[in-house]
Design a protein around this nucleic acid. Structure first.
Length: 876
RNA sequence: GGGCGCAUAGCUCAGUUGGUUCAGAGCACUUGGUUUACACCCAAGGGGUCGGGGGUUCGAAUCCCUCUGCGCCCACCA
């Protein structure tokens, strides 16, 4: 059947994706085979595909398709994350645009809007992944707020509370004044910012003296409840036991002493604001200081802000500096570089704030997860992340799991009174009531007396269960699915979420399954542009993946993504790489067009060239297969692709096909053709994980197979031993062919003109590739001789000398110069080898085989020099 | 401030436990080639003091020290 000259990626890719889907090839069910499981890092439900997803999911699809071809029961579970803060922010913004304030809605009303939004915009990203070719088991698609997923989260919260791991604490937390919620430490991004250090004079009570403090946040002086000095600081001995007066509000505060204060920083006097700084809180607790919170939830000042009440903190900073200046208490302003925390989601500057929140004790839970990585039950790839992981786990801090949001799992804590301890934790309100009745000894308590904590749980508190909950392993810990598919095999994700997610999944795995959640964690790099900038929406430097796939085909983009992304290293994305990818697809297409165009003869015998070519390629293929296998074991996917790429392009197309290609107009022997097809099929299998569409297209086009089996579910070629000697001999022959080509080029001898070739075979090179040399070099007669051929062009491969007799004079001077250059090089080489051998310490200390090798090199060089000298002499 | 990592060709990167004249790949570049699959092609080439300096060793891109320049993670200096 004739093939179109141009491969149409668009229509072909859509065709085969539908075919795979219709035949249910992505779906996995429990059977006798060994399972191979990957759970997708669930993207935000309302997100759209970006280049990071492309890289990530390309790798996952390669792994899953390869496992499928290797005969495993491959199961790739897809799904999405409710992304509480990000999604809620989007919904709030959308409502605002419609003139609706979240504050004016009830929780139920707001959630209705949120679900509408989710249903409208959710899952787009999963559809986009299909275009990439992702062979996920879509029947298993999960969402972190599916009923049983949420129920798992609630069950785990209650369980951890009952085990004493979860507690409620009044603590300094990271407050995002824009989203009006707390954040975990990991959600705070520190940025360097050029700010100022303000020096402010405080009056000392009952004295006309002052003291000067330095602060970066002058607006917080209204919340000051002490001044702290170092007890060892001689300069401030006179301040001991005194009191100071806060400017503007004229409040009298104590001067306390603590060695925490750095004598060398600022003025050595520290103002203490326990409500708005973690260290100040520590000092406050230690010295029993009053706590004055001066901010509202949106970081405007409250009534403690006096005449600044209602104004934003940054506005107040400017205005208060003015006022201090006018009052003459502003000593000076210095420029100061400091780090400020910002919200990962909203970008707002974080305000440390004291509030009641829920925390998870991490220390004990983290231990098995730390051990698992250290003793390699769980492998991090690349390994350098082990150190980072260990450091974090050894210093892990308690996890603030509550968020002042509505979108997410509501915390199953029920309050029945105003006291700090007047609450119970239970999976349902009925159970809560029972517990509350017991706790209060009040049988008259009803559900209307119970108020559920309005806060929702951190998104990561649901996603840390992902590898378990997608198989319903929390609610039904003994169901067959979880027992079969868990632990999963590989996790492919970005290093940015190593702590957010990966570490916590390992923790949850050990706590709830007593077992690791996955064996290998492959951490991909960050996708950057050519200027090394991280690709992001705000910079506008990220190409649209869908457009890329429209332009280069999904196969082309997959290859493009991989061509330069070793694990853990950032990937400098360059659209040209996709072009190279589609070029590769085109190359395969054309190779098949060639083969498909041959006429096959049942009577014609396979030629000697055919036979040796097939024998060589089969060995070469096995060698490549072993290499590819090794690369996959090391998660060096790009290298595995490059090996497959060169195998197809160089070995298969440039060498093999050229060898077996029948002369123009002639048919190919049936036997040879059958072998060519088998070899092509093996290549398609190897390439399928990388470029699934073009390979399936060609596979399906070949009509010679027995069963109507799809490539996606075929079996990888069996690995066998290979003859490395044969491969080496071919390399030698290919160098002879290169030599002929060079001569042709230098002397302007067209390939169409056949030439003769004579050889003095000192290396005793094998003759089995002679017909190949004749065919690819267009050699008429290939003869072996003992005598050099005068007046012929010459070249050498190792120590063999090749002669091409030509009519017309050769340039003797040119020949001599060439020979002399080679002689000089060889003599230099010999000298360096002999230098080594003359060195007694080398001969005595180096291993025997190394010395023997040097001796062989010496002998080879000596004989080569002899030949070269004779040759030069002959020419003169 | 603490910890980890990187520096090899114009670009992106390989280079196992020191041992072939070990300096390599892909892309890019130069030159030549198209009636017979592919110019998204074929062939032949050029190109690096392995960041600087010192040391260990018979021998260093590889091990040690140091300097320089980057990157990442963690951390409560107002």
């Amino acid at each position: 059947m004739a093939l179109p000259a141009k491969y149409n990626a668009q229509t072909t890719e859509e065709k085969w994706y539908n075919y795979w889907m219709n035949n249910n090839y992505f779906h996995s069910e429990i059977d006798d085979r060994e399972p191979y499981t990957i759970v997708i890092p669930p993207p935000n439900v309302t997100g759209v595909l970006h280049m990071g997803h492309m890289l990530n999911n390309t790798i996952q699809d390669i792994l899953i398709r390869r496992a499928r071809l290797l005969g495993k029961n491959a199961c790739w579970v897809p799904g999405t994350d409710h992304a509480s803060i990000a999604t809620e922010a989007k919904v709030v913004a959308k409502l605002k645009a419609e003139g609706i304030n979240k504050e004016d809605l009830t929780r139920e009303e707001f959630l209705k809007h949120a679900w509408e939004w989710t249903h409208k915009h959710g899952g787009i990203i999963l559809e986009q992944l299909k275009k990439l070719g992702a062979s996920c088991d879509w029947q298993r698609t999960k969402f972190t707020m599916d009923p049983e997923m949420s129920a798992s989260v609630i069950k785990v919260f209650v369980d951890l509370y009952n085990k004493g791991f979860i507690y409620r604490g009044y603590r300094m937390v990271n407050w995002d004044p824009q989203a009006k919620t707390t954040l975990s430490d990991e959600e705070v991004i520190y940025k360097e910012q050029q700010g100022n250090l303000y020096y402010i004079n405080y009056k000392i009570a009952d004295s006309d003296k002052t003291l000067t403090i330095a602060t970066t946040r002058p607006e917080t002086i209204l919340g000051d409840t002490a001044i702290c000095i170092n007890p060892n600081d001689e300069r401030f001995r006179h301040l001991k036991g005194k009191r100071a007066i806060v400017p503007i509000c004229n409040r009298e505060i104590p001067i306390i002493e603590d060695e925490y204060v750095d004598v060398d920083f600022g003025t050595g006097c520290l103002k203490v604001t326990p409500a708005h700084d973690e260290n100040d809180k520590m000092l406050g607790d230690k010295h029993n200081l009053e706590v004055i919170d001066i901010f509202n939830d949106d970081a405007t000042l409250n009534s403690f802000g006096l005449h600044y009440e209602g104004k934003d903190r940054f506005t107040v900073r400017k205005e208060i500096v003015e006022e201090l200046k006018q009052n003459g208490v502003l000593e000076k302003i210095e420029s100061h570089l400091n780090k400020i925390g910002t919200s990962e989601r909203t970008g707002a500057v974080i305000e440390p704030k004291l509030s009641d929140q829920w925390f998870l004790k991490m220390k004990d839970l983290a231990q098995p997860a730390l051990d698992a990585v250290l003793n390699k039950e769980v492998n991090l790839v690349p390994e350098k992340f082990v150190n980072t992981y260990r450091h974090w786990m050894e210093n892990v801090r308690d996890w603030n799991v509550s968020r002042q949001l509505w979108w997410g799992q509501q915390i199953p804590a029920y309050f029945y009174g105003d006291g700090k301890e007047d609450f119970v934790v239970a999976e349902t309100i009925e159970e809560a009531l029972k517990l509350a009745q017991e706790k209060t000894n009040n049988k008259n308590l009803t559900t209307t007396d119970l108020n559920q904590d309005p806060d929702a749980l951190d998104t990561w508190f649901s996603s840390w269960l992902w590898p378990i909950s997608v198989f319903n392993g929390i609610l039904e810990p003994n169901n067959p699915e979880i027992n079969y598919y868990y632990p999963t095999n590989d996790l492919v994700t970005a290093p940015e979420i190593l702590f957010f997610w990966v570490a916590r999944m390992i923790i949850a795995g050990y706590e709830y399954r007593g077992e690791k959640p996955f064996t290998n964690v492959y951490l991909t790099g960050i996708v950057r542009d050519k200027q090394r900038r991280k690709m992001s929406k705000s910079l506008g430097n990220s190409p649209d993946p869908i457009e890329l796939m429209n332009k280069y085909g999904a196969d082309g983009v997959r290859v493009g993504m991989l061509l330069s992304s070793p694990a853990g290293n950032d990937l400098m994305f360059d659209e040209d790489l996709c072009k190279q990818g589609s070029g590769f697809v085109n190359k395969i297409w054309n190779a098949y067009r060639l083969i498909n165009g041959w006429t096959v003869s049942k009577t014609k015998q396979a030629t000697e060239t055919d036979k040796i070519a097939i024998q060589w390629y089969q060995n070469k293929f096995q060698k490549a297969l072993a290499e590819i296998d090794d690369y996959f074991n090391k998660y060096r996917i790009s290298d595995a692709l490059m090996t497959s790429y060169k195998l197809l392009w160089d070995d298969f197309c440039s060498w093999f096909l050229e060898m077996v290609k029948p002369p123009f107009g002639e048919p190919i022997a049936q036997e040879t053709f059958t072998n060519v097809i088998a070899i092509l099929e093996n290549n398609l299998k190897v390439l399928h994980p990388f470029i699934p569409f073009i390979t399936e297209e060609i596979w399906q086009h070949i009509k010679t197979r027995d069963a109507n089996e799809a490539l996606i579910i075929a079996s990888m070629p069996q690995k066998t031993a290979f003859d490395n000697k044969l491969i080496k001999e071919f390399e030698f022959a290919s160098q002879v062919i290169s030599g002929i080509r060079t001569i042709r080029k230098e002397k302007n001898i067209s390939f169409k003109n056949a030439i003769n070739l004579s050889v003095i075979n000192i290396e005793n090179a094998s003759t089995q590739f002679d017909t190949v040399i004749k065919k690819l070099g267009n050699i008429d007669e290939l003869t072996y001789t003992k005598e050099k051929l005068e007046g012929a062009l010459t070249f050498r491969v190792k120590s063999n000398e090749y002669f091409v007799p030509v009519s017309g004079a050769i340039n003797v001077e040119e020949e001599i110069t060439k020979l002399e250059e080679e002689l000089k090089y060889t003599e230099g080489f010999l000298k360096s080898v002999q230098g080594k051998l003359k060195n007694e310490r080398f001969v005595n200390n180096a291993p025997e085989n190394v010395v023997a090798n040097e001796r062989k090199k010496e002998a080879d060089a000596q004989s080569k020099i002899k030949i070269l000298k004779a040759r030069i002499k002959g020419l003169r």
